[in-house]
């Protein structure tokens, strides 16, 4: 992590991510906000790449950009007021208070934590990730999959019409 290249990349990525995050907040068009969110996801993926965690970076792109962002887009599309100005709200004061408090906590934690620095290259290879997920962390991993499956089945059941249920002999 030295040399001009990575440093330059770090600052560029920081700028992109922060600007995108700001864009999410200030843009009044919901769809623009989602696109900014996607840009900020991409920026995070760039950080992972910079930290030599290629697999995480790619997973970030696949999952966040390829899947989650698309789901958010669906949600936005089903919102009637996509293009309308969505800025006006009665909760400005509490929201401001909450965000200032949260920012204070974050800054405090970041400032006070003694960050470990690792000397050797921490290569998080796919093998090690897979071993960890299916070895030490197998229980949370499986619980998460069961939860997701349950959510999937629930979602399917929610949108089924009685006619579909009647005509589908497999159900």
């Amino acid at each position: 992590m030295d040399g001009a290249g990575p440093t330059l990349a770090f600052w560029a990525l920081s700028a992109v991510t922060l600007v995108a995050a700001g864009g999410v907040l200030v843009s009044r068009n919901l769809l623009h906000a989602v696109l900014f969110l996607i840009l900020s996801f991409v920026g995070i993926a760039g950080f992972f790449l910079l930290l030599s965690a290629e697999f995480l970076a790619m997973a970030q792109v696949v999952i966040y950009v390829g899947a989650i962002a698309v789901l958010v887009l669906f949600a936005v599309l089903l919102t009637p007021a996509v293009g309308r100005d969505n800025g006006e709200t009665r909760f400005i004061a509490p929201a401001l208070l909450l965000s200032v408090a949260l920012a204070a906590v974050f800054i405090f934690v970041i400032h006070d934590t003694t960050w470990n620095t690792v000397d050797e290259d921490p290569r998080a290879t796919v093998e090690s990730l897979g071993t960890a997920l299916l070895g030490r962390w197998v229980l949370p991993f499986e619980i998460a999959s069961v939860l997701l499956t349950a959510a999937l089945v629930g979602a399917i059941m929610l949108v089924r019409s009685p006619e579909e249920e009647a005509e589908d002999g497999l159900a």
Partner: peptide
């Protein structure tokens, strides 16, 4: 259970 009705 109801079907999801979109806006025509």
């Amino acid at each position: 259970m109801s079907t999801i009705q979109g806006e025509p």
